[in-house]
C-alpha cells in the first residue's frame, strides 16, 4: 500500500517535472555531442531566438486565462514590424515616436478584438482568426506588397527618404554587459510582470475566474466584460512589442517576418500547460515552453539536422506536451 503510494508520488513528481527533466536531458545530450552548446554566447542566442515567441505567447496565455484565445498575435506582430518600418522610412519618425505609434496600434488591434468578442458576441477563436486575416492583408497595402527598406519605391512612384533610427535598432541589438541581449531582458521583464499579475494579484485571480466560470465571476461582482477587454488589450500590446523587437533586429520591414510567429506563440502557451503539470494556461509554463522549443531547435541545428524539419519538431513537441497534459495527467491525476 505504502509502496503504491510512494510509486504514485514518484509518478506525480515525474509528471510535474517532466518538461524540466526533458530539458536537462536534451541539454546534456547536445552538450555531449557539441560542447559549444553550453557556451554563454550560444545560450544567449537560444534565448534571443525565443524572446519574441515568449512575449507573444504571454499575450496568448492572458487571453486563454479569461477563457478566450487570441489567434491574432502573429498578424499583430507582423503588422507592427511593417508599421515601425513604414513610420521611420516613410514618415521619418524617430525611435520614441515609432515605439509609441506601434504600441498604440497593437493596443487598438487588441481593443478591436475585444469589441468584436465582448460587445458583438463573436466567438473568441473566430474573431481573432478574422483579425489575423485582416491584419495580414492590411500590412501589405501601404507598400503595395513590397518589403520596407530605406529607399523603397512607394506605390505613388516616389522613393522613401527616411531610414531606421539607430536608437530604434538598439532595441534588437543592444546587450547588457555585452552579454545579455535587450530582447532577452524584455522577455524576462514581460514574463515576470505577467507572472506577478496573473498569479499574485487580485486582478489575476479575477482574470482566471472569468475564464474558469464567467457566471460565477460575474455573480461575485467581477467586471467580467472589462477583464476580457483588458486581457485582449494586453495581448495586442505584447504582440506589438514582439513586432518592435523583430523590426529592430532585422532592420527592415520584411513582409514575411511574422509567418511562423502565431503558431510558435500558441505552441509555447500550450506546452506551458504541461509544465509542473499545471494543465491550465500559465505564464511560467509559456516561458519554459518557448525556451524548450528554442533549445531543441538550436541543438538540432548544431547537430546538422536540416532546417526544414523544424516545424515538424515543434509540432511533435506540442503533440507530446498536450498528450501528457490531458491523457496521462488525467488518468493518473
Amino acid at each position: 500500500m505504502s509502496d503504491r503510494t510512494a510509486m504514485t508520488d514518484l509518478l506525480r513528481l515525474a509528471r510535474q517535472g517532466a518538461v524540466f527533466l526533458l530539458l536537462a536531458a536534451l541539454a546534456a545530450l547536445f552538450a555531449w555531442a557539441e560542447p559549444a552548446f553550453l557556451s554563454v554566447p550560444n545560450l544567449m542566442s537560444v534565448l534571443l531566438a525565443v524572446a519574441v515567441v515568449a512575449i507573444l505567447g504571454t499575450g496568448v496565455t492572458l487571453s486563454v486565462a479569461v477563457g478566450g484565445f487570441d489567434l491574432s498575435v502573429g498578424a499583430i506582430a507582423a503588422s507592427a514590424v511593417m508599421a515601425a518600418s513604414y513610420a521611420m522610412v516613410v514618415w521619418k519618425f524617430g525611435a520614441v515616436e515609432t515605439v509609441a505609434f506601434v504600441l498604440a496600434l497593437g493596443l487598438a488591434a487588441g481593443l478591436l478584438n475585444a469589441l468584436m468578442i465582448v460587445r458583438l458576441g463573436v466567438p473568441d477563436l473566430l474573431a481573432t482568426l478574422a483579425m489575423n486575416f485582416l491584419l495580414s492583408g492590411l500590412q501589405l497595402i501601404p507598400t503595395a506588397g513590397r518589403s520596407i527598406a530605406p529607399g523603397v519605391v512607394l506605390p505613388d512612384g516616389s522613393r522613401a527618404a527616411g531610414r531606421f533610427d539607430p536608437d530604434f535598432l538598439l532595441i534588437g541589438r543592444a546587450r547588457l554587459f555585452d552579454t545579455v541581449p535587450l530582447p532577452v531582458l524584455l522577455m524576462a521583464f514581460v514574463a515576470l510582470a505577467a507572472w506577478v499579475l496573473t498569479e499574485r494579484t487580485r486582478f489575476g485571480r479575477l482574470l482566471f475566474a472569468t475564464g474558469g466560470n464567467e457566471e460565477a465571476a460575474r455573480l461575485a461582482g467581477a467586471p467580467t466584460a472589462r477583464l476580457r477587454v483588458l486581457a485582449y488589450a494586453l495581448s495586442g500590446l505584447l504582440a506589438a512589442l514582439g513586432g518592435l523587437v523583430v523590426a529592430a533586429r532585422i532592420g527592415r520591414g520584411d513582409v514575411s517576418s511574422g509567418a511562423s510567429l502565431l503558431l510558435d506563440a500558441v505552441a509555447a502557451s500550450l506546452i506551458g500547460y504541461a509544465v509542473l503539470n499545471a494543465r491550465r494556461p500559465n505564464v511560467l509554463g509559456t516561458l519554459v515552453g518557448a525556451v524548450f522549443v528554442g533549445v531543441l531547435l538550436n541543438g538540432l541545428t548544431m547537430l546538422n539536422v536540416p532546417y526544414y524539419t523544424q516545424d515538424f519538431v515543434k509540432g511533435a513537441v506540442l503533440v507530446g506536451a498536450l498528450a501528457m497534459t490531458y491523457g496521462l495527467g488525467r488518468r493518473a491525476g
Binding site: G204, R205, F208, A209, G212, N213, A216, A220
Partner: peptide
C-alpha cells in the same frame, strides 16, 4: 455553475 471554478483552475 453559479459559484465554483473548474477543478484544478486557479481559485478552485
Amino acid at each position: 455553475r453559479s459559484s465554483l471554478m473548474p477543478p484544478g483552475w486557479p481559485g478552485s
